[in-house]
Each structure stands twice: as C-alpha cells, then as structure tokens.
Design a protein around this nucleic acid. Structure first.
Length: 270
DNA sequence: ACTTTAGCCTGTCGGC
DNA sequence: TGCCGACAGGCTAAAG
C-alpha cells in the first residue's frame, strides 16, 4: 500500500524514462477507477511532451503544456515503464504510449487509484486545502502543536489527517510515534510542544530513510523496476503485534484508532 | 463552523 | 473446494 515513500520511489523510477518524452497515445481500458477518468485525457494528452514528473502528497503529476495528468496509486496501484509490446494483464487499466517504443502502464487490481486531469494554471480541488509536505521546512513541530490545540482525537489519527500534513499513512504514523516515544492513543491536544518537535523530526527522518531504502513492500508494492522496498525489514512497530519490542522486549500491542490498526510498545511509548 | 466518526469502494487471504 | 468475514487507504457524507 503506497504511502509517500512508495510514491516518491515510483516517481524516481519513472521520471528518467518519462521526462522530455512525447506521449504518442493514451489507451484507456477501464475508465472506472476511484473516479471516472476524464475522457478529454485521451484527446488532449497525445502529442504532448512530459515536461516534468512531480509528486504532491501521494499524487504524481505529469506536467505538459496542455495540462497535467494526476495519478494516485490508491492501495494497490503500480506504475511501470515497459516495452510497448508487453502483453496486457487483467488489471492494466491505462497505457501512456511513449515515443521511445515503451509505455507507462498503470496497473491497479482494487481500482482505488485515480487518473485525473488539471488544466494549465488550475489546481485540482483534491490538491487544495491539504497540509504541507512533511519533508519541507513548512512542516515542523510547531505546526503540529498549533493545529492540535483543543483536539480530542488521538495523536496518531491527527498525524494521519491530510489537512495537517500529507503523506503520512498508517505504517509511517505508527513508526514515527514509536521512534518519538509517544503513545498513539494520547489525545492530540495533550501532547506537549517539545514532544511534537521530536515527532516532526522522526517523521522526517523515517520518511527520508524509507525513500532511501526504496519504500516498504507490503503485499503488492514493487518499485517501477520490479525491485521490492527494503524498509520492511526496518519496521519497529507496524505489523509486529505480540512480537518483542526491539528496544525493551515488551510485546508490541495493537489497538484500533480511527478505524486503523495501530501498533505500539506500552513500555517505550507514553 | 469545525471536528470526529462511519461508510464505501474491491480483491486477497485465512479459516472453516 | 467453496464460502465468508476481515482487512487495507483515503475520500465523502453524516453526526456530533
């Protein structure tokens, strides 16, 4: 399930093959993803050169002079650059045919992903009102502290709120709270300024390290070149219920917070 | 007006 | 072998 590091890994994998290339055709095999694919993509995109591939939150943005294609991988989405004659699989929903005799192929078994369109100068409404990028200076402990005052939701649910900071999903929220020594069940409004500073630092450190390691592979995720992510081996809390805490040996516990499984060490996290 | 919660979308997997 | 429930992330609508 792609979170920010997996989307960034995907961006870095496809960008060298996409940027500066011309899209010669678009094949839409299934228009019914998370939202319907805007049909104008099939007419506007062919002939366009991809100027750059950007990531904002968990969206990938393919910029062209005619507009920008927004791609979201959902839970099971994958983007790969393949030889143009690669046989079509059951869940291969979109091909962007390139002038390099290859194709950028979007595969998504569960179809929670999306392909949307943004005209030049516009910002898609899904990208408005979302929080700062966690790996920029716009995100720090004071942002968390200020926004959290008076909030009764758990600090983990708060950290996963896209209006607070983007790209921190279930896996990395659990890991960052473990690293910061904060109990995920604690009310967001009752976490101190000092502890939020630590939390923001850990969010940045863990996301950056996960990107360096090629993301976390759980179930479906593979980088565009087919390589698995190796951050999985570094998980200290996520998915380790009943296993010994790597720091103190206490069994890791799991609770449900905001409809999400949340893993923590009852000794190290307070 | 804002925060929080519940529901929905779909395929896979484990258990019986 | 086949069925059923649980689960996954993130957006939306409803509730508080």
């Amino acid at each position: 399930m792609p979170e920010l590091p997996e989307v960034e890994t995907t961006r870095r994998g496809i960008a060298p093959h996409i940027e500066g290339r011309r899209i010669t055709g678009v094949v839409l095999r299934r228009p019914d993803l998370r939202w319907p694919i805007p049909p104008e993509i099939a007419s506007l995109l062919p002939g366009q050169v991809v100027d750059s591939v950007e990531r904002r939150a968990k969206y990938l943005l393919l910029h062209t002079a005619a507009g920008t294609a927004l791609l979201h991988l959902g839970m099971s989405g994958m983007l790969r650059v393949l030889p143009g004659d690669t046989p079509i699989g059951k869940h291969d929903h979109v091909d962007f045919v390139l002038d390099s005799d290859r194709a950028l192929r979007f595969t998504d078994p569960r179809r929670f992903g999306a392909l949307l369109w943004q005209m030049p100068g516009e910002t898609h409404e899904l990208l408005t009102g979302i929080g700062p990028e966690p790996l920029t200076d716009a995100f720090d402990g004071d942002v968390l502290w200020h926004l959290s005052r008076g909030r009764s939701a758990s600090v983990k649910t708060f950290l996963m709120d896209n209006a607070v900071v983007v790209g921190v999903g279930n896996i990395y929220a659990s890991e960052a709270l473990f690293a910061a020594g904060i109990d995920p069940r604690r009310a967001a409004g009752k976490v101190s300024r000092e502890r939020y500073a630590r939390l923001a630092t850990e969010v940045k450190r863990i996301l950056a390290y996960a990107i360096e390691r090629g993301g976390t592979t759980l179930r479906d995720f593979l980088a565009p070149d087919g390589a698995p992510g190796y951050f999985f081996q570094e998980l200290n809390a996520y998915g380790r219920a009943g296993e010994a805490c790597k720091a103190c040996g206490t069994p890791i516990r799991v609770v449900t917070l905001g409809q999400r499984a949340s893993f923590y060490c009852p000794t190290c996290q307070r």
